[in-house]
Amino acid sequence: MINLESNIGKPADDEPAQERAILKCCDLSMLYEPGKGFENANLEIFSGEVLAIVGESGSGKSSLLKTLSAQIDSQHGSLNYFPASSTTSLNLKNISEAKRQSLIRSDFGLVHQHPMDGLRSRVSAGGNIAEPLMQNGERNYEQLRAQALHWLDAVEIDCDRIDDLPTTFSGGMQQRLQIARCLVTQPRLIFMDEPTAGLDVSVQARLLDLMRKLVKQLQLSVVLVTHDLSVARLLSDRIVVMQKGKIVEAGLSDRVLDDPQAPYTQLLVSSVLQS
């Protein structure tokens, strides 16, 4: 007879991957108070993949993203980054503030949910894109202009808008501008927090398509926080499902969505409106 109890909920990724991760956390915890934040997170992010963290609001996914991107500290566990240039890993937990800043500036990219959180409202679109380059020491105006034009084009913003303020842009354009600003330094790892939330459906589709294209073209590694399962399905290779601060399921995106194992994931998947 069938053994109904065997292997239920067994994770598919019980065999270690052969390749080296870019970012790895073990038993990482950050609880602001019981039930707020996340605990015992184990994750690896590999080169050229998109990892989606899904879960409802309050599940701790944004806190996890902030910790992974070294914006906030954690209480327990380890968090290691593996720089491209070095064979040894960088422990992000006891890294000096100066080193942390320079790492974020050179290797990480952040895309906020609200585009104006990641843009300067009183600086032109071109200036917004060029700023990270200036931060990294670029001092040639023509070079900066050329880069700004290149990235405006890459995110499908009309080059004529280069000298306009982002406040004159639509929400979708602002979000694309933020992505351009984030990509201009060619980071290895990008963290996105609900990048499509708050946009019209048609604008969302365009942005998703653009992101998918850029991720493939530039071989980016992305950690994407979203509550929208269709966004996760479209963009991500792997999905991590969070509930009440804990990772309840992880695996290949289509496997998690088509054959969810954890009760919470099943609830989440069955709650999605079919179009």
């Binding site: 503030e97 100066a98 800043q101 200036g127 060029a130 990270p132 380059l133 931060q135 105006y141």
Partner: peptide
């Protein structure tokens, strides 16, 4: 204060960039 601490002065350059733009 943090920007000073980490010599994060790219944004000051932005002001000059905006000047040339305008």
């Amino acid at each position: 204060k943090k920007m000073h601490a980490y010599s994060d002065y790219g944004s000051m350059q932005v002001k000059l960039y905006e000047d040339i733009v305008q």
